[in-house]
């Protein structure tokens, strides 16, 4: 098998919380708990989970914007957190990010040329102004905007167009990996469809690899080839999109999928929800124990490992 483009190996990330007392040791919040993932060339990997589960922390670490407490990320076989800063900076052209809020992520005082060409300036590409402008104009037409839009400012564009500008900015350095952190959640459904279609066309054209982070399960199912479900900093289920959405094994994934409101009014939800047995949660127990309807005594004292075969992994003792 080919070497993966990105290999995330045993990532732990702890954040220090404020001290309650002066001489106390600062309490620690563990945002990520032993994450292992592999992203392959030209595929899309989805990361799903509720707010606060560590999705965005993972994105920041993959982008080398934040250092993990332990573990590391290999990009094309190179250890991102064990290389000279200058080399990392040079490598950054290969991975770019598209952010969530198209209103907050574009500088309102810069014109589109300045915004889209900024990565080129930061990476000190030796380009004349004309060359730069030509390259920006080319990328703008790629994302469905006009080449003449370079002199306009962000406020002249709608939300969907702004997100296209953000995609253009990410693409200008010709990266191989794009991390999309909730990139379509702020858009209206009809515009969201346009942007998703665009992202998939670009993927085909440039053989891009996407790391697609979203809380919207239907979007993730639509876009990705592989999915990992994260709960409280741990991967609880991982597999190909088809198997995971068709036959979710972890109770948390099942809960998530069941909670998506169905657009067919005939499929009313059943009222009776499964009863959740009461177990006391300890540091040792499965993180999902207090919300799980399948919890047994085993789950109290042991946290399940991520195991499975055929690439469908699940961290649950009672998975079925």
């Amino acid at each position: 098998m080919k070497q993966p483009l990105v290999k995330i190996k045993g990532i732990y990330k702890d954040y220090q919380l404020p001290k309650k007392f002066l001489f106390q040791k600062a309490p620690v919040f563990r945002a990520l708990h032993g994450i292992n993932l592999e992203l392959h060339h030209g595929t899309s990997f989805g990361i799903v989970g509720e707010s606060g589960c560590g999705k965005s922390t993972l994105a920041r670490i993959v982008m080398a914007l934040d250092e993990p407490t332990s573990g590391t990320v290999f990009f094309d076989g190179q250890d991102l957190f064990n290389m000279p800063a200058a080399k990392l900076k040079h490598l950054r052209r290969n991975f770019q990010m598209v952010f969530q809020d198209p209103y907050g992520s574009l500088n309102p005082r810069k014109n589109i040329l300045g915004i889209v060409a900024e990565p080129l300036d930061t990476l000190k590409e030796k380009l004349s102004f004309a060359q730069k402008k030509e390259r920006v104009a080319k990328i703008l037409t790629e994302v469905g905007l006009n080449a003449t839009d370079t002199d306009k400012f962000p406020h002249e564009f709608s939300g969907g167009q702004r997100q296209r500008i953000a995609i253009a900015r990410a693409l200008i350095t010709r990266p191989s990996l794009i991390v999309a952190d909730e990139s379509v959640s702020a858009l209206d459904v009809s515009v969201q469809a346009q942007v998703l279609n665009l992202m998939m066309d670009l993927q085909e054209k440039y053989n891009l690899t996407y790391m697609f982070i979203s809380h919207d399960l239907s979007v993730v199912e639509y876009v990705t080839d592989q999915v990992a479900v994260i709960y409280m900093g741990k991967i609880v289920e991982q597999g190909t999109t088809k198997t995971l959405f068709h036959g979710p094994l972890h109770p948390y994934t099942q809960t998530l999928l069941r909670a998506v409101p169905d657009v067919n009014p005939l499929n009313k939800k059943q009222k009776n929800k499964p009863v959740i047995p009461l177990f006391k949660k300890t540091d040792m127990s499965c993180p999902f124990i207090d919300r799980c309807h399948k919890a047994t005594k085993t789950c109290v004292d042991n946290a399940p490992e991520l195991l499975g075969n055929d690439g469908h992994l699940v961290a649950c003792f009672n998975a079925e």
Partner: peptide
Amino acid sequence: LFSAIPHVGSSVQLDRKRLNSIPGQ
């Protein structure tokens, strides 16, 4: 609007079809 949203369960029924977006804004 209805055909612009991806539905959960879509990956099982159909292979990677483009979403029908409404043109313009």
